[in-house]
Simulated assay, not measured.
Amino acid sequence: MSAPREAGSKGDALARSIGWSQQWSAEFPYMLANHLPMILVAMQRMGADDRRLEEFCEIYRVQNGLVPVPEPKGAISRENWRDFLGDREREGDYRTFFQAQVGRLGATPTARLYLPLLFDGFAASAMHAFMRMAYATWTDNDEETAIALAYWAATYLDLGTGQGAAASTDDPLGVLAYMYGPSSFRHIVTECDLLWHNMRAVAAKPEFAPVHDMLAIGPDTMDRFARLSLALFAATGDFSLLHALTGTHWLRMMAPRSPDPAVPMRRFWQAIASLIPKIGFPDIPAAEQVEEWRRQKVPDWPEIFAEAVRHDDEHDLSLTFSASEEFKLYRDPLYNYVAAKRLGLI
């Protein structure tokens, strides 16, 4: 199952490589997210040529030990599809089901029908099912849409639906600040150090239940997510906080398939809050320090992209691409800073 190398016109490599990547399960041992199809898109948008995309497929397969999609276990239908949520062994069955739904309804109608029912499990595979759906939406790829829905269903993880309480803050930082209070969050024990195991263990604490309802979603909430996630990642370079920065980009990518955008926004921030103990209760950087980082001389995006596409680390590539896309919206040089720092350019 070597990487895709077939005759074709220039530009075919991305579609061919993504098609090749679809033979592999959405996770590889031990329950880690397969980023390959999303990273291929990011690399191509950052200027990687066809040869580099094809080479990266094989590098990624070998480095991570990609495994095939699980064998079928039984039929999944519109009547029983919710009975197997969170069962990773049913990924193949869910793929078959959602492929049929996409074929019957179309990709976007299928996503808009099923995503509201999957959003409760937003933490699926540490939010990487969300990532796959974001890229599937952005590229309008039917097969990737079906695979993303199947991935979300098979790894579904609900961090709690809340208590129906009134929101207590419109500031995302206020939600994160709550996590610093209860002593139980200082004593999280997991069977292994996977992100989603940490998220699940935190959500099991009774003190976590109010988090779902805390944030009042308003017209500036996305901007607040973006500013806070960027500042925290700039301060820490933390792996978990990288997903806060990239996640704000994914929310925008997925927006056309989110009937009520407030629902995934609330679930996203709940998931980020659940990672605060894993991150180590980071200090919030002072505004003066953030401004100092902004004033640093950093490379422009063409130089950053040229370096990024030489890297084989999926998080280097994901972070750089999402930072560049968020920069287009906010024009904040701190995005250049965090990408250049991640890549070792400064």
Rank of each mutant, 00 (worst) to 15 (best):
T137S: 11
T137N: 05
T139M: 07
T139F: 04
N141Y: 04
T145V: 01
T145S: 01
A146Q: 06
I147P: 12
I147G: 15
A148K: 01
A150L: 03
W152K: 00
L157T: 00
G162R: 07
G164L: 07
G164D: 08
G164W: 04
A165K: 09
A167R: 01
S168W: 01
D170V: 00
D170Y: 00
D171R: 11
L173Q: 15
G174L: 13
L176F: 10
A177G: 01
Y178P: 10
M179P: 01
P182A: 09
S184P: 07
S184F: 09
R186L: 09
H187K: 15
H187W: 13
V189D: 08
C192Y: 11
D193G: 09
L194P: 01
L194D: 06
N198R: 12
N198C: 13
V202S: 10
A203Q: 10
K205C: 15
P206Y: 14
F208C: 15
V211N: 13
V211C: 12
L215N: 07
T221F: 01
T221H: 04
M222C: 09
D223M: 12
S229W: 00
L232H: 00
A235C: 01
G237V: 08
G237A: 09
D238W: 09
D238F: 08
S240G: 06
L242Q: 06
L245T: 04
L245I: 02
T246G: 03
T248P: 03
W250R: 09
W250P: 07
W250D: 12
M253S: 08
